[in-house]
């Protein structure tokens, strides 16, 4: 029972990360109909900007980086959201610039070209980031911003074999932050004028333009929004796993699985992305625990292929219409 609860909690925390990243993939796909392979690199960027800003900001709050990590005082609690917002804003701007320079000129080109451009942008970001005067190649430790409080703990069994399950503050914050961001996005997409415009563009770009919707501006905004969510995911990832890796397999896999999540949920569908994120995390965690950890990634991709074969447009995707 303890094991089950533990696995469940891990799956929820990881699932919310996947969902946040999947949202970015799905929004861009919904509007521009291409897979934005550079999206996972924005997540990395978000993580590294969080790292850089906290290295720069924390000494003002009595955190001395020359002493060992265990002896450093905890910075005030409000620093974490400040860093989150800085990282989100910076990534938003970078997302805007990328869209403006690399994707907008290709608006009428075949989709495959945009895809290749996205791969190019991804390569560019990865290798730029590894330059030694930017972030470098060595992994860095993210300073601790959140206290490791235990909000609640349960004990299962007794005596020798008693095992404890702890709900930690960090995990709760990850879930809470992603849930808040998802609710904000939900409101934005389904309740505001801008969201209506986004959905209109995604439905039919040309008609939307004829209706007086500034298509380019809406697309830019989508990119900014997606990049901000990605940055938030990057920040939360380094909160949970404090080692910050440059362009490492960590990020490639994270991006890939989030992308799979978006597809499973029905790419282009905002609610589907969230659902997909959690489904992936559950399959991965429970599969690894109850079946075997060796084939953890196989479960995810096998599930993907299975779902696509049964329901070719994902769980919540609308059926494709054939146009003649």
């Amino acid at each position: 029972m303890a094991d089950f609860t533990q696995t469940l909690m891990t799956a929820v925390a990881i699932g919310s990360l996947y969902a946040l990243i999947a949202l970015g993939y799905t929004m861009v796909y919904g509007i521009l109909k291409f897979i934005n392979f550079a999206h996972s690199d924005i997540v990395v960027l978000g993580a590294w900007i969080s790292y850089t800003t906290s290295r720069w900001l924390l000494p003002y709050f009595g955190v001395d980086f020359s002493v060992s990590a265990a002896d450093r005082p905890l910075p005030p609690l409000w620093i974490a959201p400040v860093i989150l917002i800085i990282s989100m804003l910076t990534c938003g701007i970078i997302g805007f610039v990328i869209e403006r320079l690399a994707y907008r000129p290709l608006r009428r080109a075949p989709r495959l070209n945009v895809l290749i451009t996205a791969i190019g942008v991804s390569l560019l970001l990865q290798n730029l980031g590894q330059l030694h005067f930017l972030f470098g190649t060595s992994p860095q430790t993210m300073p601790i911003l959140l206290p490791n409080w235990e909000l609640a703990s349960f004990t299962f069994g007794s005596g020798e074999s008693a095992s404890r399950v702890v709900i930690s503050f960090v995990d709760t914050m990850i879930f809470a932050t992603s849930a808040t961001l998802m609710l904000v996005l939900e409101y934005l997409v389904f309740r505001t004028k801008l969201g209506t415009a986004m959905r209109a563009v995604s439905f039919n770009t040309d008609t939307a333009a004829l209706m007086g919707i500034p298509v380019d501006r809406v697309i830019s905004f989508t990119f900014v929004l997606g990049s901000m969510l990605a940055a938030a995911a990057g920040f939360l990832q380094v909160m949970k796993y404090p080692l910050n890796q440059p362009a490492h397999t960590v990020w490639v896999l994270l991006g890939l699985k989030a992308f799979v999540a978006a597809v499973i949920g029905g790419i282009g569908n905002v609610r589907g992305a969230v659902l997909g994120g959690f489904v992936i995390a559950f399959v991965e965690q429970f599969g690894a625990f109850y079946i075997s950890s060796q084939y953890r990634d196989v479960y995810v991709f096998a599930l993907l292929i299975g779902i696509l074969l049964v329901k070719p447009t994902g769980l919540l995707g609308s059926p494709l219409r054939e146009k003649v």
Binding site: N113, I116, I119, G120, L123, L124
Partner: peptide, 10 residues
């Protein structure tokens, strides 16, 4: 390499 790729596509 990445820059050339992007530019060639554009």
């Amino acid at each position: 390499f990445a820059l050339l790729l992007i530019v060639m596509m554009l």
